[in-house]
Simulated assay, not measured.
Amino acid sequence: MRISEAFPNNKNHTFYTLTDYNFFIESIRKHVEEKKIDLIIMSTKGASSIQRHIVGTNTGDIITKVHCTTLVVPENAKFTSLEEIAFPTDFLQFYGVKTLIPLTDILERHESALKILHISKKEFQLNNDQQKNKEFLDDYFNSHHHSFHFLTNKRVESAVQCFVESRGISMIAMVAKNLNYFQQILFHTRVEEISYQTEIPFLVLHE
């Protein structure tokens, strides 16, 4: 089925078919640069009978190797209003204004509440750099409804799961800068009790 047949007519949408025989990532990078792409939207498959694969190889490569804001939509995701958006961070990295603009646009358009989430394996106080980064986020999102939440759990992905369930989170947003922290949340494969990776859209922000 062609895309034009799968979607109703809408003057705001235009579909183009591109054929490129270059390597996958190099091709995506080329089109992002040439066409000034602002956002990549990709879907991910749900559970298989043997193992639940959270992010396919192509999607995983794009969100880690292509510097373009990417919205990952799991196969089991259902369309809902974006009332609350979770923003996990360890406050170790400084996020520039340009990086956060796509998230700000969503907050303004949907009047969403931003839940800035810090997860640690044990209780501790933020160091000076972390505190400064936290204060910057507090100031940057000052005109938007936002709040800070601190959880302690040995497994980061379990803490995110509990937070998503307790708050009814509609989307998770994260900056792909601290790769280790990023991978713990999105690429964790032991998902017997983890469902947010197959149900909640994930907005990946790049610098």
Score class of each variant (00 low, 15 high):
Met1Ala: 09
Arg2Ile: 11
Ser4Gln: 14
Ala6Thr: 09
Ala6Phe: 11
Ala6Gln: 06
Thr19Gln: 15
Asn22Glu: 15
Phe24Pro: 00
Phe24Ala: 11
Ile25His: 09
Glu26Trp: 15
Ile28Gly: 13
Lys30Tyr: 12
Lys30Ile: 02
Val32Asp: 06
Ile37Lys: 06
Gly46Trp: 03
Ser48Glu: 09
Ser49Cys: 03
Ser49Asn: 06
Ile50Met: 09
Thr57Pro: 09
Thr57Ile: 14
Asn58Gly: 06
Thr59Ile: 15
Ile63Asp: 01
Cys68Phe: 12
Thr69Cys: 14
Thr70Asp: 02
Val72Glu: 00
Val72Trp: 01
Pro74Gly: 01
Pro74Glu: 08
Pro74Cys: 07
Glu75Ser: 11
Asn76Phe: 15
Ala77Leu: 02
Ala77Asp: 08
Phe79Gly: 03
Leu82Val: 04
Glu83Pro: 13
Ala86Gly: 14
Asp90Trp: 10
Tyr95Cys: 02
Val97Asn: 07
Leu103Val: 06
Thr104Trp: 04
Thr104His: 05
Leu107Trp: 02
Glu108Phe: 03
Ser112Gln: 06
Ile116Thr: 06
Ile116Trp: 01
Ile119Glu: 05
Ser120Tyr: 00
Ser120Lys: 04
Ser120Cys: 11
Ser120Gly: 13
Ser120Asp: 06
Ser120Glu: 04
Ser120Ala: 11
Lys121Gly: 03
Glu123Arg: 14
Gln125Ala: 14
Asn127Pro: 07
Asn128Arg: 06
Asn133His: 13
Phe136Pro: 02
Leu137Glu: 00
Asp138Leu: 10
Phe141Met: 01
Asn142Glu: 05
Ser143Val: 04
Thr152Glu: 15
Glu157Ser: 08
Glu157Thr: 04
Ala159Tyr: 07
Ala159Ile: 08
Gln161Cys: 12
Gln161Phe: 09
Gln161Pro: 06
Phe163Gln: 05
Ile169Gln: 00
Ser170Asp: 07
Ala173Val: 04
Ala176Pro: 05
Asn178Val: 05
Tyr181Val: 07
Gln184Ala: 05
Leu186Gly: 08
Thr189Arg: 12
Thr189Asp: 12
Arg190Cys: 12
Val191Glu: 05
Val191Ala: 12
Glu192Tyr: 08
Glu192Trp: 07
Glu193Ala: 12
Glu193Trp: 07
Ile194Arg: 00
Ser195Gly: 06
Ser195Pro: 10
Tyr196Glu: 00
Thr198Phe: 11
Thr198Gln: 04
Ile200Arg: 14
Pro201Gln: 04
His206Trp: 12
